[in-house]
Amino acid sequence: MDNLSLRRALYQDPSRVSAQQLSDDPQLAQLQQELLQQDQWCKQLLNVDVPAQLADRILLQQRLQPVRWYRRPWPYASAAALLLSLWFWQAQPPALSADLGQQALGHVYHELAALGATTPLNADSVQPLFAEIGVTAALTMPVVYARFCHFEGVRALHLVLEIDGQPLTLFVLPAQPGLPDTSASQFADARFFGKSVTTARHHLVMVAEQPQLLAQIGPALLKSLKFNI
């Protein structure tokens, strides 16, 4: 390495040039010593005081950081799945409005024992129930079961009437936003047949095991009910 290259190397980093390389040039050896001394002074100056416990403060700050979702994905994934499920069920139209008949059938099966009732209820005890939902009834057939139930939060009167020895279930519920507007619809499953009728402010849902019973009693039943509100 020539003199100029050595000089350049010394200024670039005096500690990386060996004394042996400079043995033939006392001037360069002297320059190296001076630059090393200069570097030593610089290092002392660069070595400024570090604030006490700075590392601890940095670690504390890091621990107080909100946890990123991708560092702990499972709790966040679970929460997201839960929210998605809630949204899905919220987004679904109420089952009632989707299928009033299926709701009615569900209630019939839930109160299946009511179909076996044979003792007629006193008209005085039934009328107040009708009154509660704004209906005046002048039923010509005996009522053997009467109770309030709920169709997706809508209070409904669940009745079992006896017609020619056969039970017929009748639900009367006030019309609500979200309930179907269809004037009449039919439904059935393997055991029961049903028919729903919508008046201005009420829904009537009839369920029986014999379809002819529905056809037979439907119009008369409608005539016997007076919808006050």
């Binding site: 660069l46 070595n47 400024v48 570090v50 604030p51 700075l54 590392a55 940095i58 670690l59 890091q62």
Partner: peptide
């Protein structure tokens, strides 16, 4: 790993930053 990095380099990074911006 993070703690090891902080412990190892905080002082020198601070000194470097000091000379970079000349403010404690």
């Amino acid at each position: 790993r993070y703690e090891a990095l902080v412990r190892a380099y905080t002082a020198d990074l601070y000194r470097y930053a000091w000379w970079l911006c000349r403010s404690a």
